[in-house]
Design a protein around this nucleic acid. Structure first.
Lengths: 337, 337
DNA sequence: TTGTAAGCGTTATCAT
DNA sequence: ATGATAACGCTTACAA
């Protein structure tokens, strides 16, 4: 890696001072046109690019956003795309660190970015994360923080998330409406907020319709197709076999679907199935799976917007919560009326 | 954002010089144990973290890798995971910029990272990219560059990629072996190297078996399910209808599958189908789709390793090419013997 | 064992 | 219209 062209190089070559070069480069009004032209010509020729490190050190800001996410699956990737789009537009650079659902890596990532690399953070915590000291540390240092999707409740920060309860309600209401009576849920890890909220919607709705809740019909398993497949197999083999399953992700719905097919049951006749996320894949399998759209791209964009507002010092941002409404897309896997 | 603790703060508080603090922090041998202890205690208390910006400016290196990728779909996300894993392990920070298959954004991203933010680049070009000046510029500046997956031929740099020709051969050989005679291909954009190589393998194999190549059976379309769906519809409606389709991505295979089902044809009986990437989804649809595994995670790891070697000045890295062998996974969509 | 000073690349302030 | 200087946070000769 060779030395890049600096202002000093230009200054020496032109036999003027670095300050003049700096001014000329930024089109200051008090530089002789002649000088300006010479500087610009040379900087062009030498392909001068300002050193952002030096700028950042001087201004104490990097114009870089640190984005910490637990993985790069469809939903998060879509959200990152949304963040990216808005942030780039606003002149920010985005630094994405993916922690692979590992609490340890999340901490490492946070620490690294905290070393003055970014001005602020946009975070979605990993499913493994139960202790939030590293997140609190960000705030202790008075560094701007926005939480999205997998938010942390007892931290005061702008939060952008889906109305997960409503998603659970929509899915469950629909299944009930279709005549299903014994609705099971494949939920995610127990400490995962988004999962619990979707389950809350499910429980509320059962209650509202005076349907009995069977403890055995509530399964916690990892956000993972394989686990969902096995959990479903057990469900289908149980005494009180459910006649519908609501899974809190599409990946899990696919796993459930495999188990259902294997058992020789038909959807939506024998058993109804509703997933969550509305990933493209759900309309590609047979039968197509009903799923709750969570508008990931929109959530991403709203998150970046909240971040930008916060940075511009907008009042009342500190614990604003933006809640996006989900929408159930009904498909063959659960439509029997 | 408040001022972070600096070495100076510690120096003043302890009434010693900044150099002593710096030395103590780095456990230099010539610092009095007493002083060392005091410095460490205080730095702990004030939660001192070295400012990486200042370090980078000083050392002229950021220990950050700029990763430029065209999108965040399954394959690239998996590769990034591989890069991440190895790079983090080796103490590098990874900065991922996704250009959304846009040539313009790829240039913007490159420019930004070039402003002294990263020590080197790991790049996979967008499908839209036909001009490579921005990539050449990286090298003009003598900044280390590694290309992966979607490589650029006439640029001398370490390249890590799949043996795409072989992938095309494996897929086509298999289809022929299964008795298919009129094999069509859904290829990607015309200027996309990976697509052309897979097609080359396809053409070679047809030739080797003295099968006629029907111009109408070679379709270029965007890397996109919808286009693939439409292209397949046309193929199936054509006079010389193919009895097998090889698509150069699984997304496209899914699109093709939809069109095939819609037409009422059965796989593998009426028509054979082979995809590429071996994404999880292919074993979830019915029939499961045969697909060429490209070992994306391995490619990612190999890429990061090549980068690290290059940085450590290993000789002969400058235009080494690492080629990963693909492997066809045969499933129901193409197995009729 | 510790301090001083210069330097990384840039800009803002204050001269000239 | 231009130059000199200090500063951002840190390390490293060199000096003491």
């Amino acid at each position: 890696m060779e030395k890049q062209t600096t202002i000093k190089d230009i200054a020496i070559a032109l036999n003027i001072s670095t300050s003049t070069v700096s001014r000329a480069l930024r089109d200051a009004p008090d530089v002789k046109a002649e000088t300006k032209a010479a500087v610009k010509a040379l900087s062009e020729k030498l392909d001068y690019q300002p050193n952002r490190l030096a700028l950042s050190l001087l201004n104490r800001q990097t114009n870089t956003i640190g984005v910490i996410i637990p993985n790069l699956d469809y939903v998060l990737a879509t959200m990152v795309k949304g963040i990216d789009e808005v942030a780039l537009e606003a002149g920010y650079t985005v630094m994405v660190c993916q922690s692979d659902e590992s609490y340890g890596r999340e901490i490492v990532n946070t620490k690294r970015l905290l070393d003055s690399l970014v001005d602020g953070f946009i975070v979605s915590v990993s499913s493994e994360t139960k202790i939030f000291e590293h997140i609190k540390k960000i705030q202790d240092k008075k560094i701007p923080l926005v939480l999205f999707d997998r938010i942390v409740n007892n931290i005061a920060a702008p939060k952008i998330r889906l109305d997960n309860i409503d998603g659970g309600i929509q899915a469950t209401e629909h299944l009930i409406e279709q005549g299903y009576k014994k609705i099971a849920i494949l939920a995610g890890p127990e400490n995962l907020n988004i999962s619990n909220k979707r389950m809350e919607g499910y429980l509320q709705t059962l209650k509202a319709h005076s349907l009995r809740t069977d403890k055995g019909h509530i399964i916690h398993c990892d956000f993972n197709q394989q686990y969902a497949y096995e959990a479903t197999k057990e469900l289908l083999a149980s005494k009180n076999r459910p006649d519908a399953i609501f899974t809190i992700s599409d990946r899990m719905a696919i796993g459930a679907m495999l188990a259902i097919k294997e058992k020789g049951l038909s959807m939506p006749h024998d058993i109804g199935l509703v997933g969550f996320n509305n990933e493209p894949i759900v309309s590609l399998v047979t039968p197509a799976i009903s799923s709750v759209e969570m508008y990931a791209f929109e959530i991403g964009k709203a998150t970046a917007r909240a971040y930008i507002e916060m940075m511009s010092g907008a009042a009342g941002m500190s614990d604003q919560e933006i809640i996006i409404k989900p929408k159930l897309f009904i498909r063959a896997s659960s439509k029997r009326r």
